[in-house]
Simulated assay, not measured.
Amino acid sequence: MVTVSDPDELQTVHLRVAELVQGLHNRPDTDSDTVLAELAEHAAVEITGAQYAGITLTRNAKTIETPAATHHWPLLLDKIQQRHLEGPCLTAAWEEKTVHVADLETDERFPKYRKDALSETPIRSIMAFQLFIAGETVGALNVYSEQPGAFGADSRNLGLIFAAHSSVAWNSARREEQFRRALASRDSIGQAKGMIMERYGVGAVQAFELLRKLSQDSNVPLTRIASDLVARAQPSSP
């Protein structure tokens, strides 16, 4: 946890976060889960007042995931949100805003969540920042403290910086994963087409049409049809 006392220090933290994200981009083996885990760890350290941090993701406001958390408490709090379909992190994710719970003992916005959070965890203050995620998924970067009134203006400024960088980093990592999956699918389809062309003496278009018909008839994705065909053609291990 850091304390930001002036604009120069805020700028310094901003640069540290940018360098962190750049470092994640430069590592060839970094996947989206790793990006989120590392950003959550750094958020718990950098954001003023934070003891713990976590990422909340949801697609339809009914199913909640916690792909990254620095402690058991963020995981449990998301389970409570899932239980009651209400809470500050879920609200931040869907309503595209920052949600600040200064003192869970007195905050009345999420009554069911508040009751269980108070009885099951020591968390007393929360600040949640909406993540700008491409596609149907929405999310929030959340920080937590066992002390009421732990978060203020510095926390909000740093949290917004982290949320912006986290959104960019995760979207980029997801695009890389999608690109790698697309390449793998293309390779599998290409190999399967080649096998059919060689075995049945047909052209590339005819081979692809055969794969497509098999996919339609069996109601199985074309990429899986191709992968299974290639896998069956591999020699068995002794």
Rank of each mutant, 00 (worst) to 15 (best):
T58P: 02
K112G: 09
P148H: 09
T56E: 11
E105N: 15
N60W: 05
A173G: 04
T91R: 12
T121I: 02
S167F: 03
H165A: 14
G152K: 07
A102N: 15
E108L: 12
A169W: 07
H72Q: 04
Y113L: 05
A37P: 00
L141Q: 05
Y52Q: 02
R59Q: 09
D33I: 11
T98P: 12
A61P: 03
G135Q: 00
L158P: 04
L141P: 08
R175K: 14
L77D: 00
K97T: 13
A43M: 10
A169V: 06
G159Q: 00
L77W: 06
A128E: 10
G159A: 02
S166W: 06
L76V: 06
L131A: 01
P88W: 12
W170R: 07
E108I: 14
T48S: 09
E41T: 09
N171I: 08
W170L: 05
Q81K: 03
K97R: 14
S145I: 01
L76G: 00
G149A: 06
A69I: 03
L131N: 04
E38I: 09
Q130A: 15
Q51I: 01
E86M: 05
K112Y: 07
E120S: 00
L77N: 00
A40Y: 06
F129Y: 14
T48Q: 10
S172Y: 13
S145K: 04
P88R: 11
W170F: 13
P122F: 07
V138L: 10
D33R: 01
A40V: 04
I123E: 04
G152I: 07
A53C: 01
L75N: 11
W170Q: 06
W73E: 12
A68Q: 08
F110H: 02
E96W: 10
A102G: 14
E95Y: 14
L57S: 02
A93H: 05
T91Y: 12
A102F: 13
L85T: 10
A68S: 14
E176D: 14
E108P: 09
Q81D: 02
H71Q: 04
E146Y: 05
H42I: 04
A40E: 00
R114Q: 14
M127G: 09
L90P: 08
V101L: 12
G49P: 01
V99W: 08
A40Q: 04
A68V: 05
L75F: 05
S167Q: 05
S125H: 10
V138F: 10
Q130T: 12
F151C: 03
P111T: 11
P111L: 11
A61E: 10
A150C: 11
Q82Y: 06
A128M: 07
Q147A: 15
F132P: 07
K115L: 11
H100R: 13
H71F: 08
L77R: 01
A68C: 06
R156G: 01
N171H: 05
K62N: 15
V99P: 01
N171K: 02
R109I: 03
T48L: 08
I55H: 08
A169R: 04
D31S: 03
C89E: 13
E176G: 13
A140N: 08
L118A: 07
